[in-house]
Design a protein around this nucleic acid. Structure first.
Lengths: 356, 356
DNA sequence: GTGAAAGCGCTAACAT
DNA sequence: ATGTTAGCGCTTTCAC
């Protein structure tokens, strides 16, 4: 990176013109602060004449309400999204859905990405600290009791949690069904040596684990085991980091082993993409090792990738999450659980094994 | 999506326990509010004894400072990122770099994604309204004069702008060099019928266009034209939407035309991926039509995709952006311009044409 | 329909 | 080193 000569400081003191406040607008329009406040909030009790007057003043002074000040008394008109991985396409779909649902509302969305080594609760807290009016979070490993405390003050929608709360709403996919579809598909194709590669489970096992449902990935793994055992086959589960690089490495090793699998069921598409890259690099294809992913991210459809994957419609999930939040803000106080039915899209990456 | 029975409202009024304030902590610790404030800000003038006392009280009361209240007087310890497209992998790299740079600081990052049909200035404004302490934005088409007004109050780093300002900092790649590398590469391979496919330029042409440099995509297009004309070839530029779907359609049509190109220079990788999908669907490959992209997003390296692309190191850009903001917050007042040198990664998607 | 006044939780400037 | 006080810009009663 090349740095240009810093612009010479010509000594002119930076004029920090004070942004206009509600007070300025009130003076300019010849009304009270309260009146201006009512106008900008579309509140009851403003005459047509006053409204136009105030709006003109706002225009003239380029007035913009400070969100911080508003948040101290009323609402911030901001909805916060906690996203564990900015680059994850499934999460992107959720954000897209929510963006769409919020377009016609006065609410702005902000996203709090997880920092390096940062846990979900830090980001959720940071949203709460910022007085957002509602939170959507994807945090499978956070203590439900803690979430309920957050939900006491801020409407909260959790995506991908199978536990039930009467404080926060949940939106999930039916992970059991999705995993069943994957396994049925692979078994019907004739696969027997099927490996399941997924992300590391929580360690140590949290005390509330299994309390009221499990993490999506844990459920998928459980279904995998059940189906393997039911056929008298030996389950083989491998855990890796979430970003796909380790999935790539592990797959290389797997391919070099004496009895490589003929199919790999990946816990999600990011891992599946990493797996596919190792297979391709080894000069092999789906007839050697089939791969099935989960989430049906956009790139899965790409003809060069053509990854068989479980679609759980992230866009709808995001849209619904936003809707649930708006409902809460409109007064709903009972909890809602939404579950969608996933659907397997069969593509080129899964095929009959060459040597069964 | 299936809705579960709403949890019955058992009539218990939701107890909204008032979160503790700095006042509560002061009382609990037997000190003044100011003392507590100093402790949480690590400010000068606190005895060791008081510090431990206050910290204990904070712990006990689970006190968390309200960002809105802090922002009204001091800082919000928040840095805002305006991102035109959440799903764009190049932008993701920028966010990742910034996340890394911010990990060891007290600053939290929030991302303001663009809503549907929303312009960059709306999102930038919304960050400013939220009193973030600094803003990083990717907004090639916003009036520089307007940006300078924002920068008067909030430190601002613009990514991908070739104009110079003494109010805000800029980080760019050398788009001229990047595009030159692409064209040289394709020409050396023997391509003559090269099409350039890129995103729609601003319409109408903004009054400040060309004032002090141009949009990255415009520069890349200009280089393409120059190089084609220099060889006595007819430039052919096609504009599409940014999301790659239209690039896919356009490419289909191109392949069906009487004299299809032997190479396509895509304005960025998202478009290149869309182009590749059309080529693959038509049963063709790089010997028929070569493709070169720009940004070198992670998927470009994938062996199934193997897209030749210009690496402009988004991660470093993001890291530097965060660093520049922190510098400004530490007192720098002169503007800085950073430019990095892009580098072409040659991969399978570009090859000698079968029929030149 | 409109305005006056009382805070919201915090920090900064100023005491002590 | 610690405490006191005066706001920051806004919304929300509650008078008029």
């Amino acid at each position: 990176m090349t740095s240009a000569q810093p612009t010479p400081d010509n000594g002119s003191p930076v004029p920090k013109p004070r942004p206009s406040t509600i007070e300025d607008v009130a003076r300019e329009a010849g009304v009270s602060r309260a009146a201006v406040s009512k106008v900008i909030r579309n509140a009851y009790g403003v005459s047509e004449r006053m409204r136009t007057q105030v709006e003109a003043a706002i225009e003239r002074l380029e007035y913009r309400p400070r969100v911080a000040a508003r948040a101290m008394r009323g609402a911030s008109f901001t909805l916060g999204f906690e996203i564990p991985q900015v680059g994850n396409d499934f999460l992107t779909m959720i954000v897209d859905g929510a963006t769409e649902a919020l377009a016609a509302t006065p609410y702005q969305m902000i996203i709090a990405p997880l920092g390096r080594e940062q846990k979900s609760d830090v980001a959720i807290n940071s949203l709460a600290d910022r007085q957002v009016d509602g939170i959507v979070a994807i945090a499978p490993r956070v203590d439900p009791a803690w979430l309920e405390r957050i939900a006491e003050r801020t409407p909260l929608v959790m995506i991908g949690r199978h536990d039930r709360s009467d404080r926060y709403d949940t939106i999930t996919g039916d992970d059991r069904s999705g995993a069943e579809q994957v396994m049925s598909h692979l078994i019907e194709l004739g696969h027997r040596r099927i490996v399941h590669l997924t992300i590391h489970p929580s360690r140590p096992e949290p005390p509330w684990a299994g309390q009221a449902g499990d993490e999506p990935h844990v459920i998928r793994t459980a279904v995998y085991r059940e189906r393997m055992l039911a056929l008298g086959l030996e389950p083989s589960v491998i855990h890796t980091l979430f970003d796909g690089s380790e999935a790539h490495e592990v797959t290389r090793a797997l391919l070099d082993s004496p009895e490589p699998p003929t199919a790999i069921f990946a816990g999600n598409d990011t891992l599946a993409i990493g797996i596919l890259s190792a297979i391709a690099e080894a000069g092999l294809d789906e007839r050697d090792v089939s791969v099935v992913g989960y989430d049906d991210v956009p790139i899965a459809r790409h003809p060069l990738v053509s990854l068989t994957s479980v679609d759980q419609d992230g866009v709808t999930m995001g849209r619904e999450a936003a809707r649930l939040l708006l409902e809460r803000l409109a007064g709903r106080t009972t909890a809602v659980q939404l579950e969608n039915a996933p659907r397997l899209h069969e593509r080129r990456s899964s095929a009959r094994p060459r040597r069964p």
